[in-house]
Amino acid sequence: MTGTVLILGGTAEAAALARIMADERGRKVIYSLAGRTVTPRLPHGETRTGGFGGVDGLKDYLQRQTVSVVVDATHPFASRMGWNAAQACAALGLPILRLDRPQWEAGPADRWTMVRSWDEAVIHLTPESKRVFLAVGRQELAPFAGLKDIWFLLRFAESTAPQPRPAHFTLIADRGPFTLDGERALLREHAIDTLVCRNSGGTAARAKLTAAAELGLPVLMLRRPPRPEGPSVGSAEEAAAWVRSHFIDAH
């Protein structure tokens, strides 16, 4: 059976799924990005960039493109898109799968404090937190912008300085995956005393946590937001099998 697969992307797992599906005949694959990264890594095949205009806009797009199945492979913290996709697919009776990389779990050497918001993370910063590696998204800096006594290390894919931004910071333009040796050297070079990050999961950004544990650094980690109930897998290969099974069943 021919049909269209919409992959809501933005993660390494989403790109991997798009590459797998692009090599298979009989299906059209559309890879969708929010458009926040200026120079995103794109898989082969058809891509689209930008929002849909909420649930109604997404429903209209799914109908116009005659989409058969949807895979929500957005970042674990891109929760709004996930809820919109779930509502749109429920309204149209379309199957939807969540491709969600496993969360990170603390080990014996980790000094993690889990928080539910960045405002809570700010409260947990101690007087000893003077040089903080702020490994968060570009749109998540506002709660830290008013902290005058802390210097922050920021790292984004693009070199453009974000707004709002902390009073004292250094910005590094780089993108993962990052090596343990590189992360260890980064923390030492900048004399980092605290790491602040999201529980993004996966392997591309895990090295900074290992390096922090080796150096005995405290970590303030944001919990993942809730997602809609429904089928979920943890790898691109599992997602590809799910997509195939739905086309086989439909046939």
Results as ranks from 00 to 15, higher is better:
A161S: 12
V132W: 09
E120S: 15
L99N: 05
R165F: 01
T126L: 10
K148Y: 05
H190T: 01
R101M: 11
I150E: 04
L94W: 04
F156P: 02
I192Q: 07
E183K: 00
D181G: 07
F133E: 00
L94Y: 04
L153C: 05
V196D: 02
H124Y: 11
L171C: 10
R138Q: 13
D119Q: 13
A157H: 02
A157M: 12
A121V: 07
Q103V: 15
A167H: 07
F144Q: 00
R111N: 15
T113A: 14
D149F: 00
A145Y: 00
R101Y: 14
T126A: 15
Q103S: 15
G201D: 04
L141H: 06
V132Q: 10
P177K: 10
R184F: 11
R188Q: 15
H124P: 10
T160Q: 12
G146H: 03
Q139W: 02
L134K: 13
L153V: 06
Q103K: 14
F133N: 01
L180G: 12
F152H: 09
T113L: 15
L97R: 03
Q103W: 12
V136R: 00
E183I: 09
L147H: 03
A191T: 09
D193E: 02
E140C: 01
T194L: 11
R198H: 08
C197L: 13
R98D: 08
L134S: 09
E158G: 06
A167E: 14
E128F: 06
F144V: 11
G182H: 04
W151A: 12
H190E: 03
T194M: 09
P164D: 04
D193C: 05
F152P: 07
I172L: 11
I172M: 11
E105V: 08
A173I: 00
R138L: 03
R198T: 09
D119F: 12
D100E: 15
L154D: 05
P166L: 06
F156W: 08
R138F: 02
P143S: 04
D110K: 00
G146Q: 07
W151T: 14
R188A: 13
F169C: 11
E189H: 05
A191S: 13
E105D: 08
S200E: 09
R198V: 03
L99E: 05
D193V: 02
E158W: 11
A142M: 04
F169W: 14
R111I: 03
V196A: 07
T126H: 10
A191P: 01
G182N: 10
T113P: 10
K130W: 00
L147K: 00
G201M: 10
F178D: 03
H190P: 02
S117G: 14
F133L: 08
P162W: 00
L147A: 02
G176Q: 05
P166C: 08
P108L: 13
F144S: 06
R175W: 08
R131L: 12
L186M: 03
P162L: 03
V122R: 12
W112Q: 13
A106T: 05
P143V: 01
